[in-house]
Nucleic acid binder design. Sequence first.
DNA 1: GCAAAAGTGTTAACAGTACACCCATGT
DNA 2: ACATGGGTGTACTGTTAACACTTTTGC
Lengths: 265, 265
Amino acid sequence: MTYDISEYDRPSVAADIVVFTARKTSRESYRHLSAPELSVLLIKRKEPPFMDMISLPGGFCCREETIEETAERKLCEKTGVSDIPLSLLCNLSKFGRDPRGWIISCCYWTIAEYSDTVTDKNAQWYNVKFEEKENHYSLVLTDNDGNEYRSEVMLNNKNELYNQYEKAYIPKTSLAFDHAEIIVRALLRLRNSLDKPFAAFRFLPEEFTLTELQQIYEMILGKKLLMANFRRKILQYVEETDEIERGAGHRPSKLYRKKNSENDF
Amino acid sequence: MTYDISEYDRPSVAADIVVFTARKTSRESYRHLSAPELSVLLIKRKEPPFMDMISLPGGFCCREETIEETAERKLCEKTGVSDIPLSLLCNLSKFGRDPRGWIISCCYWTIAEYSDTVTDKNAQWYNVKFEEKENHYSLVLTDNDGNEYRSEVMLNNKNELYNQYEKAYIPKTSLAFDHAEIIVRALLRLRNSLDKPFAAFRFLPEEFTLTELQQIYEMILGKKLLMANFRRKILQYVEETDEIERGAGHRPSKLYRKKNSENDF
DNA sequence: GCAAAAGTGTTAACAGTACACCCATGT
DNA sequence: ACATGGGTGTACTGTTAACACTTTTGC
């Protein structure tokens, strides 16, 4: 009964990464604040399968690296971003999910502070609109030219996510493979991570105003929060700096930084 | 740049499963309740590598199944237990973790109601003693004959778990491969899952007393809870039945069942 | 001055903690 | 009767939610 690894068929193993960031919209006037918009990093595919469709960044694993290291390296190649912690999201392994053959995807998610330094010319940040409908999730991605990519992802009776059109090699979503499903899973995970503010911090620079932090929460939860209550709740996790943010047509605000704690993420 | 899956080296992919259960200890007297003990399902290996050591149940993936299906099937083969939801725990993929070659492990964890029907003669429930020390975790497993298997698992500075002896093919823990590390990760996950009682329910039959449920909490958290407070907190998740449990030398207790809710796990 | 956002204070409802007390049972 | 666990009440404390109010700025 000894397992001889050469005897059996083996899958290719890929790592796919969902990277979120927050991009500021332009200000309405000198008075108004700009709201951040949730964005996700996607690649326009330039090779088959799913040529010219958008997909998550990722790549195939090799024995010199762990899966996480492959994911980190691929992410760095596309965006120049490194040294950010990845969290495991799910493994997708249904045969047929990739027309090239038996390919398992290990999916990770993370948050990066926004910067324009996307180093791959086919990579780009897409704005995310996400809504929970009666019996499915609706996902709308918008590129920098305003093109919209819509996907619907449904829940089955086991409360697992599946792609409505999973039997087809070419999905009716606007994303390659089962990547719409992966993004929806990541969005749900992101929402659930907000009971502690450690994920929210990662959208922002070292120093930030409490309003900026609150806007991150509002962006992810899709609803307004009351300032007074938000401040009280969050104060235990942050500390004041000596800095002040000026320049808007209203009272300037103190800058805060996250308090050191043993267990950030 | 098209990926030809035959061109690259591919790993073997295995699924390993951490199954927890609660076994009742014998009663001290007719008056006393019996406390449950946390146990985990392990297999005595009868083939190399790590012959005669204990290891998690698991098996290799094939293209006819998803990884989760492989895990469910293997679990059913060893224990007869089926239809229990598995949760993804981690992927371990460091080259060298398995002396047979490049083998990735996708690790899942779950909870089963206790029964003696372990169908594989080398499979057995092991009692778990788990302690957080200064800079590592200490794990002691005890088999039905009272033999103890001790392992120490450490934390590195990135707050990830790693095996103290990871460079050696034959670990100095009493478990095969990196399975001590996997069990520790599952124990931590189990502890963190208790803010809602859905995991705790799965240790118990359909109908249970609130004291039994509280004992599950105490078993996992490793500390006593106050009955009055526990009852108040848990009441929102359970409903009374008409049944009563009798037979002990004290006031009989009502049986409860979990309340139906949309999102159990 | 004014609009916008920064920031504080107050209240009531609610949840969590600790502890005291009574109830029902098998031997 | 009595030890043991089942079960309730209560007083205290901390957290959350809603809303009213004051402060500070750029134009």
